[in-house]
């Protein structure tokens, strides 16, 4: 039996696990990005006046602290986070998704903050000069102009999440990791190699699907004037 035969005979299971993998990543990245973008918008209000106490102080503190904290979380091996959350959220999809969400935070938050704060100062000043208030400026000028950067952050974090989601199988999270764990535990048995190979390569297929998805989203959501 060669690899293609293996894929053909087990297509039902493989397709199911690929779909599950895709969905777990989609849900986690969706929630994580929503949290990060919202947080980024809330804390990118402006530099605080060093002489006067204002809400900007909190915003800047949360922003800088948040970046350091989420960056640190990103360096924690996924196996450790799965292990730490397992006693709290139990075996299965909940733990898998929570851990994946944690890994999406930094990249999206960083890109959101960077995108919002690097908008051309001349553009922001003229917006103010034309009578744009703070919120209007944030939502109609900064956010659309930062969007390509934010979207790219989401894209990168998606790719990373695909490979992390594999480890989720350790806590019985759904997805292609199940093929890997099954394969290695049956090493030497029939098709065990194909199982691991399929699980690994199908991650790339999931990644390709996401890349196409993001190419379409980019087309649809990046304003025409700033499209490259």
């Amino acid at each position: 039996m060669n690899f293609l035969d293996y894929l053909a005979t087990n297509s039902q299971q493989i397709v199911f696990l690929t779909q599950a993998h895709f969905l777990v990543v989609l849900i986690a990245v969706g929630i994580g990005s929503a949290i990060s973008v919202a947080l980024g918008l809330a804390v990118s209000t402006g530099e605080p006046d060093p002489r006067r106490f204002s809400l900007d102080w909190f915003a800047t503190g949360i922003r800088e602290g948040g970046l350091v904290f989420t960056a640190a979380l990103l360096t924690v091996p996924s196996l450790a986070l799965f292990a730490l959350f397992l006693p709290i959220t139990g075996l299965g999809i909940t733990t898998a998704i929570i851990v994946l969400i944690i890994y999406t935070l930094y990249t999206v938050l960083r890109n959101t903050v960077a995108g919002l704060t690097t908008v051309d100062r001349a553009v922001l000043e003229s917006a103010r000069g034309l009578g744009y208030g703070r919120v209007r400026r944030l939502l109609t000028i900064q956010l659309p102009l930062a969007w390509p950067v934010i979207l790219n952050g989401i894209r990168v974090t998606t790719l990373i999440s695909i490979s992390i989601a594999v480890v989720g199988a350790v806590v019985q999270g759904p997805g292609l990791g199940i093929l890997l764990l099954n394969g290695i535990s049956r090493i030497g048995a029939a098709n065990s190699f194909y199982q691991v190979l399929a699980g690994t390569l199908l991650c790339l297929v999931v990644a390709a699907v996401f890349e196409i998805f993001f190419a379409i989203v980019q087309r649809l959501t990046i304003p025409r004037g700033i499209r490259v």
């Binding site: 051309d120 001349a122 553009v123 000043e125 003229s126 917006a127 000069g129 000028i141 659309p144 102009l145 304003p223 025409r224 004037g225 700033i226």
Partner: peptide, 8 residues
């Protein structure tokens, strides 16, 4: 100076 036109 730089015009400050909204690029989008």
């Amino acid at each position: 100076q730089q015009g400050g036109l909204f690029p989008h």
